[in-house]
Simulated assay, not measured.
Amino acid sequence: MLPSLDGLVFSPTGRAEHGEVDAATSFAYREQDGRVWASYQGGDIVHGHLVGTRAGDTLEFRYVQLNRAGETSSGHCVSTLSRLTDGRLRLDESWRWESRPGAGTSAVEEVLPPVG
């Protein structure tokens, strides 16, 4: 099993069709005893939160967010955690909106703190 997500920051690799997060969005993850949660913002997202569980290297969570247009949205996501060749962590996501039509796949990758 890969290490805990607690205290790690992730950023999307791009913007998925039907999605609202993009490379300007930052996810701050927390993890404890099989529970995961995160706050996220940036780009078109003013506030976002996710909460769920982790079993091995699979995360399952629900998310809710507020975009810059003042619209709220919510959905469900299942993600698989892996390690990139440079050592950073990656989450490959399969998600669907529950509050509106649309579904897709996307990925977020660990953002390393600046050196120095």
Rank of each mutant, 00 (worst) to 15 (best):
V64A: 08
A38M: 09
D92A: 12
E71D: 14
G43R: 10
E71V: 14
S94V: 14
S79F: 04
G48H: 13
H47N: 12
R35A: 13
G42F: 09
A24K: 06
H49L: 13
H47V: 12
T58E: 12
A38K: 10
R83P: 01
S73C: 05
Y29H: 14
R68I: 12
Y63Q: 05
G19V: 00
G52Q: 10
H47F: 12
G34W: 04
E20L: 14
F61S: 03
L89W: 11
W97D: 06
E60S: 14
T58I: 14
L84W: 00
V46W: 06
L84D: 10
A16H: 08
L66I: 10
G14P: 04
L66V: 03
R88I: 04
T13N: 11
G48R: 07
P12L: 03
H18Y: 13
S74M: 06
T85A: 15
T85E: 15
F27P: 05
S26P: 00
R54A: 05
V21C: 07
G87Q: 14
T53H: 09
E71L: 11
E93I: 02
G34P: 10
H76R: 15
G56H: 13
L66S: 08
D33C: 01
R15Y: 00
G87H: 06
D86P: 09
W37K: 05
N67H: 01
G56F: 13
E17I: 12
D86F: 01
I45Q: 01
V21F: 07
D86Q: 07
R83A: 15
